[in-house]
Simulated assay, not measured.
Amino acid sequence: MRAISLQDLGALRQQLKDRAAQQAAQRAREEAERRRREREAAAFAHAVGPVTRLPDRNLHEGGGRPLPPPEPRQRELDEQAALKASLSDEVDLESLLLTDDGLSFRRPAIGLDVVTRLRKGHWSIQGELDLHGLRRDEARDALAHFIHQSHQHSRRCLRVVHGKGLGSPGREPVLKAKVQRWLAQREEVIAFTQATGPQGGAGALIVLLGSRPRGRVPVA
């Protein structure tokens, strides 16, 4: 075993001295930081004045998990109100309906060939709404929501079943004329026609919506 020389002892003594100096400097920095925070807290308390601590209600802090995304509830309510207010039973639709071999409707910019292809099933049905059993207000709201959501999801061709009125007083289709008026007021709707027999006949309408962005006429 090698004997420790005086030179080695001197180096060790210097290392211990340097370490003690570093520790003292660290403690001095920590003490200075503590005093600084105390001065800032005292200055803040003096500026704010007396405060009363809220009682601990034992609420959960969430455990660090991300919060769920906000839901635009008010915007959805506003949209629903706008949809409901936009549909009227008093619209004069007679001048807009075509009286060919089946009830149909089209916007002025839409050609007759579009109605013909719609009636012949050129576009596949991408969504259906059955209004059987609904009261007028319920049917109106359901139709407005159905058209809006279908357009938002780029669904183009829809079937709306309003019924033939076989169970209504006088065996008259109560909703048929109303649905026609409501559809004609929706700007997303560019054409509709009475369904053929296999599609529901006189108890249903086949509806064509404009594409997104609107204004494009469907092509074959």
Rank of each mutant, 00 (worst) to 15 (best):
M1L: 09
D8R: 00
L12H: 09
Q14E: 10
D18L: 01
Q22I: 04
Q23H: 01
Q23L: 01
A24G: 01
Q26K: 10
R29W: 12
E31Y: 05
A32F: 10
E33D: 00
E33G: 00
R34T: 06
R37H: 12
E38A: 04
R39M: 03
E40T: 14
F44I: 14
H46L: 07
H46Q: 11
A47R: 14
V48W: 04
P50I: 00
V51W: 07
V51T: 14
V51H: 08
V51M: 09
T52D: 05
T52C: 11
R53A: 12
D56I: 07
R57M: 07
H60Q: 09
G63C: 06
R65P: 04
P66A: 01
P66V: 01
L67P: 07
L67Y: 04
L67I: 03
P68C: 05
P70E: 09
R73D: 12
R75A: 15
E79N: 15
E79A: 14
Q80M: 12
A81Q: 14
A82I: 15
A82G: 15
A82Y: 13
L83D: 11
A85L: 14
S86W: 07
L87E: 07
S88V: 03
E90I: 11
V91W: 05
V91F: 08
D92V: 04
L93F: 02
L93W: 02
S95M: 03
L98D: 03
D100S: 08
D101W: 08
G102L: 11
S104V: 09
F105C: 10
R107Y: 04
A109L: 13
A109M: 10
G111R: 05
K120D: 11
G121P: 01
G121W: 00
G121Y: 00
W123P: 01
S124N: 11
I125D: 07
Q126W: 12
G127D: 15
E128P: 02
L129M: 05
D130H: 15
H132W: 10
G133M: 08
G133H: 10
R135G: 15
D137I: 08
A139R: 07
A139M: 05
R140Q: 13
D141M: 11
A142D: 07
F146L: 08
H148T: 13
H151D: 13
S154I: 10
R155I: 06
R156V: 09
L158S: 11
H162W: 11
G163M: 03
K164M: 02
G165I: 03
S168M: 06
S168C: 07
P169N: 02
R171D: 04
R171A: 13
V174S: 10
A177V: 07
K178G: 00
R181M: 07
W182P: 13
L183T: 12
A184I: 05
R186Q: 14
R186K: 14
E188M: 05
E188I: 08
V189S: 09
I190M: 08
I190K: 02
A191M: 01
A191R: 01
T193A: 06
T193V: 08
Q194E: 06
A195K: 04
A195N: 04
T196I: 07
G200F: 12
G201I: 07
A202E: 11
A204Q: 00
I206C: 14
V207A: 11
L209T: 06
R212L: 13
G215N: 04
R216T: 13
R216D: 09
V217H: 09
P218R: 02
V219W: 02
V219F: 02
A220I: 07
